[in-house]
Design a protein around this nucleic acid. Structure first.
Length: 704
DNA sequence: GCGGACTCTCTTTTT
DNA sequence: GAGAGTCCGC
C-alpha cells in the first residue's frame, strides 16, 4: 500500500495535484481517489498558484457530479471554491449559446428540444416525404444524424450516404432547418453549435479562449470527437488542459465516445504529462481480483492492474436462479441478509444493464417490503403531464414557443384536431409573431378558424400574466386549474390521474424553489431541459434510507457497500445488440461489467436467470461469456441452504464455512449441509474442481 | 373530431 | 406484454 502524505494524498495523487501548466493526463482507475485528486488540484491552482476561481472551468459528466465537485471544493478552500465554473459539456455550451446564439443564426431565446419531440419531428419529416418506416426507419435516420453531429459534421460536411436510394444528408439538412424554424436545438446541437461558433468566428473564439486559464475534464474516456474539438478550440491559447479518466470505464461508445482520445492523449497534446493512480481505496481485494480478471481480456487498453489497499474481504458470489422473479426474490433475500449483518439499505444497490430489468425487481421488493428507489427510467421532465404543464407555464411566462402551443392546444379537448393544428401552425407562422405574442392577439379576438377555439385560453393567459410575479409558482397551478387541464387529467382514470397530479405538484414545488433563487423562467426551462430527472436535486425524496436501483451506466462514479448485478448473462451483459455489432461493442460491454463490479466496497453478488421473458417471449440465456474461465475461488457459487437446522455443524466439528481437504479433489470449503446423522450431505466448493455434493459419511474429508 | 378496437413495435445505455 | 400508432364508424 502506498504511503499517504500529510495532505491525505498518496504520492501519485500529490504529483497530479501539483503538476504544472500544460496538458496533464491523469489515468485514474476505479476507486483510486479521482474526484479527490481533481478537487485538490483545483484547490492548489486557487490557493497556491493564485488562479482566480472564475478562470477555472471544470467539465463533468453529469450535473450531479458538477454539484458534488463544487461542494467538495467549497469545503476544501472555503467560499472561493464556489466561484469555479463547472457543468457538463451540454450545460456549459447552453450557457455560452444564451449569449452568442445569434452568431450561429439562432435567437438567444431558443429552446432545447428533448428526444421525444426530436423523434416526432423526424417522423413527420419522413412522412411528408412519403417514406415508409420499412424503407428508412426514423430511429436509423436519427442515429445517423447524431453520428454526424458527434463527429462535428454540419449537414454540408456530412458524408453523402445513400440508404435505399434516400440521401440521408438531405434529411439531416431539412431536420436542421425544421429545428431552426422552431428555434430549437437538440442536445448534440448545443455542443456542435459552440464548435461552429468558434470555428467561424475567430474573435469570439479568442474571447472564449481568454475566458478560462485552466480547463479540467472528468470522465475523459467518454468524450466524443465534437467534444474533443470543443476542448481543442477552447484551450488553443494556453493548453492548460487536465483530463482525468479511465479507459477501462469507457461505456458511451454509442454516444460517439472515442476511447482513442484518452489512449492517444500524449500524441494529440504534445508535451503532455501522464499520472497514474492505481491504488484502489474502495473495494476489498476479493472484489478487485474479480474486476481485474474480467477486464484483463480486453485488448485496447493501457496495461494496468488496480492494487488493493483494503482487506481480502468476502469472495464475490454467483447465483443461478430459475427465472427473473426467482432472481428478484433471491436478491431480496440477499439484501435482507446484508441488512441483518449491519449494512444500511442506502449502502446497497442493484445495478442492471437495461432499465427494463427493474420491473420484476420492483414488484418483488414491494411484496417483500424492502425500501427501494429507482433512479432513471422515464425522466421526470419527460413525463407527459410535466411536459404539458411546462408548456402551459412557458407560454404564460413568455418563453414558450409554437411547439409548446401545439402540444397543449387540444389538452384538454378544445375540438382542435389534426387539421386544426395544421391551421394554427400556419397562422402562427404567417403572423411572424412568437407564440406568446400571438396569444395576445387572439385574446383581442382577432382569430380565424381553429384559432377561435383558443380565444378563451388566450384570454385566460393574458389576464393571468398581470399577476404572475406575485405568485410563488408564477401562475402554474392557477393556469392548469382554470384552463381545465387538471380536470382533463381526471378523465384518464383515478389512479393514473393521482400520480400525475402528484408529479405536477412536485413540479410546482420545484418551480417555487427555483424562483426563490431568483432564476428567470428561461433559466428554469434550461434546467428542466438538461436535468433528466427531478431526483437529481436530491431533496424531497421521502425514502432516503433505501436500496438504489439503477442502470450500470448511471452507476458510473458511484460506490456502495453491497452491490448486486442481476442478469449477468449473454443477451443482457453482453447485450444482444452489441453481440450483433461484434468485437468493439462486446469490449464495451465487458467494461460495463467492470464498472459494475468496481462499484462495490465489501459485498458483491452476480446473478443469472435460466429463463428470462422479453417482449412476451421466453429466452434461455447462458451465463455471461465474461465469466468464462473465472475460477471458483474468485467467484463463488452460492448454493441454496436447504436445511437450516443441521447446517451448523456435525459431531466432528465441520460446518458451513469449514475449510476441508479431500483425498482426490483437494482443498475446499463447505458451503452447505443437509440431512442428519448418516445421511448428511455436504456441498463443498473446491479450489480446483468446483462444487461437489458428497455424503459426509463416505467422503473422507479432513478438517483443515 | 372523437373514441374504441385493432395492430404493431419495442429501449441498451443518457446529456 | 404494454403503449403507441392506425383505422374505422359515428
Amino acid at each position: 500500500m502506498a504511503e499517504i502524505l500529510p495532505t491525505g494524498l498518496n504520492a501519485a495523487q500529490q504529483a497530479a495535484v501539483v503538476a504544472g501548466d500544460g496538458p496533464q493526463l491523469i489515468l485514474a482507475g476505479a476507486g483510486s481517489g479521482k474526484t479527490r485528486t481533481i478537487v485538490h488540484r483545483i484547490g492548489h491552482l486557487i490557493a497556491d498558484r493564485g488562479v482566480a476561481p472564475h478562470r477555472i472551468l471544470a467539465v463533468t459528466f453529469t450535473n450531479k457530479s458538477a454539484a458534488e465537485l463544487k461542494s467538495r471544493l467549497s469545503s476544501l478552500i472555503g467560499d472561493g471554491g464556489g466561484g469555479v465554473t463547472s457543468g457538463t459539456f451540454h450545460s456549459i455550451s447552453l450557457r455560452l449559446l444564451r449569449r452568442y446564439a445569434e452568431a450561429v443564426g439562432y435567437p438567444r431565446s431558443f429552446q432545447v428540444i428533448d428526444s421525444d419531440d426530436q423523434k416526432a419531428l423526424i417522423k413527420r419529416l419522413l412522412k411528408q416525404a412519403n417514406i415508409a418506416t420499412d424503407r428508412l426507419h426514423p430511429s436509423y435516420l436519427l442515429s445517423w444524424i447524431e453520428k454526424c453531429k458527434h463527429l462535428g459534421q454540419t449537414p454540408q460536411q456530412a458524408p453523402a450516404d445513400d440508404w435505399n436510394g434516400i440521401k440521408l444528408h438531405e434529411f439531416y439538412s431539412s431536420y436542421q432547418q425544421q429545428l431552426r424554424d422552431h428555434e430549437r436545438m437538440d442536445f448534440s446541437d448545443l455542443i456542435l453549435n459552440v464548435v461552429i461558433l468558434m470555428r467561424e468566428h475567430p474573435s469570439i473564439a479568442e474571447a472564449l479562449q481568454h475566458r478560462f486559464d485552466h480547463v479540467l475534464v472528468d470522465e475523459y474516456q467518454d468524450t466524443n470527437p465534437v467534444q474533443h474539438e470543443w476542448l481543442m478550440l477552447l484551450c488553443a491559447g494556453h493548453h492548460n488542459l487536465t483530463v482525468v479518466g479511465d479507459d477501462d470505464q469507457s461505456i458511451y461508445g454509442w454516444r460517439g465516445a472515442d476511447i482513442r482520445h484518452i489512449l492517444d492523449f500524449e500524441h494529440i497534446w504534445s508535451g503532455a504529462e501522464q499520472h497514474r493512480l492505481e491504488e484502489n481505496y474502495r473495494s476489498t481485494a476479493s472484489i478487485l481480483a474479480l474486476a481485474n480478471m474480467v477486464i484483463r481480456k480486453n485488448e485496447d487498453r493501457y496495461d494496468k492492474s488496480l492494487r488493493a489497499t483494503q482487506g481480502v474481504g468476502e469472495i464475490p458470489q454467483w447465483k443461478v436462479c430459475n427465472d427473473e422473479y426467482d432472481e428478484a426474490r433471491q436478491i431480496s433475500a440477499q439484501l435482507r441478509k446484508w441488512h441483518d449483518m449491519g449494512y444500511e439499505w442506502q449502502e446497497m444497490a442493484i445495478l442492471y444493464r437495461s432499465n427494463r430489468q427493474s420491473l420484476p425487481l420492483e414488484q418483488v421488493l414491494r411484496e417483500t417490503a424492502l425500501p427501494y428507489r429507482i433512479i432513471g427510467g422515464v425522466g421526470f421532465f419527460e413525463r407527459l403531464e410535466i411536459k404539458d404543464a411546462l408548456a402551459y407555464w412557458a407560454l404564460l411566462n413568455r418563453c414558450g414557443d409554437g411547439l409548446q402551443l401545439m402540444r397543449i392546444c387540444n389538452r384538454p379537448k378544445r375540438g382542435i384536431g389534426l387539421k386544426g393544428q395544421e391551421q394554427l401552425a400556419a397562422q402562427l407562422a404567417a403572423s411572424g409573431l412568437r407564440a406568446p405574442e400571438w396569444l395576445d392577439l387572439l385574446a383581442n379576438e382577432q382569430a380565424e378558424g381553429a384559432a377561435k377555439k383558443l380565444v378563451p385560453l388566450a384570454k385566460l393567459i393574458v389576464s393571468l400574466r398581470e399577476k404572475i410575479s406575485s405568485l410563488p409558482d408564477r401562475g402554474l397551478m392557477e393556469l392548469l386549474r382554470s384552463s381545465a387541464y387538471l380536470d382533463g387529467l381526471q378523465a384518464m382514470g383515478e389512479l393514473e390521474a393521482g400520480g400525475r397530479t402528484d408529479n405536477i405538484q412536485t413540479l410546482q414545488r420545484y418551480i417555487e424553489l427555483t424562483m426563490e433563487q431568483n432564476l428567470t423562467p428561461v433559466e428554469f426551462m434550461d434546467r428542466a431541459a438538461l436535468l433528466q430527472s427531478g431526483e437529481e436535486e436530491g431533496k424531497s425524496r421521502d425514502n432516503e434510507n433505501s436500496v438504489t436501483l439503477m442502470s450500470l451506466h448511471r452507476a458510473k462514479g458511484l460506490e456502495f457497500d453491497c452491490v448486486v448485478l442481476p442478469g449477468v448473462e449473454d443477451g443482457l451483459l453482453p447485450h444482444q445488440r452489441s453481440l450483433d455489432d461484434g468485437e468493439v461493442g462486446i469490449a464495451e460491454e465487458r467494461r460495463l461489467l467492470y464498472v459494475g463490479i468496481t462499484r462495490a466496497r465489501h459485498q458483491l453478488k452476480l446473478t443469472h436467470a435460466r429463463v428470462r421473458r422479453l417482449f412476451g417471449e421466453t429466452h434461455h440465456p447462458t451465463p455471461s461469456r465474461f465469466l468464462k474461465d473465472i475460477p471458483a475461488h474468485i467467484l463463488q457459487q452460492d448454493m441454496p441452504v436447504k436445511s437450516v437446522a443441521v447446517a451448523q455443524s456435525s459431531e466432528n466439528g465441520m460446518g458451513v464455512g469449514s475449510s476441508v481437504m479431500h483425498p482426490s479433489f483437494g482443498e475446499g470449503m463447505i458451503i452447505d449441509f443437509e440431512g442428519a446423522g448418516d445421511a448428511i450431505r455436504v456441498s463443498v466448493q473446491f479450489r480446483k474442481v468446483g462444487i461437489k455434493r458428497l455424503m459426509l459419511k463416505y467422503a473422507a474429508l479432513v478438517l483443515l
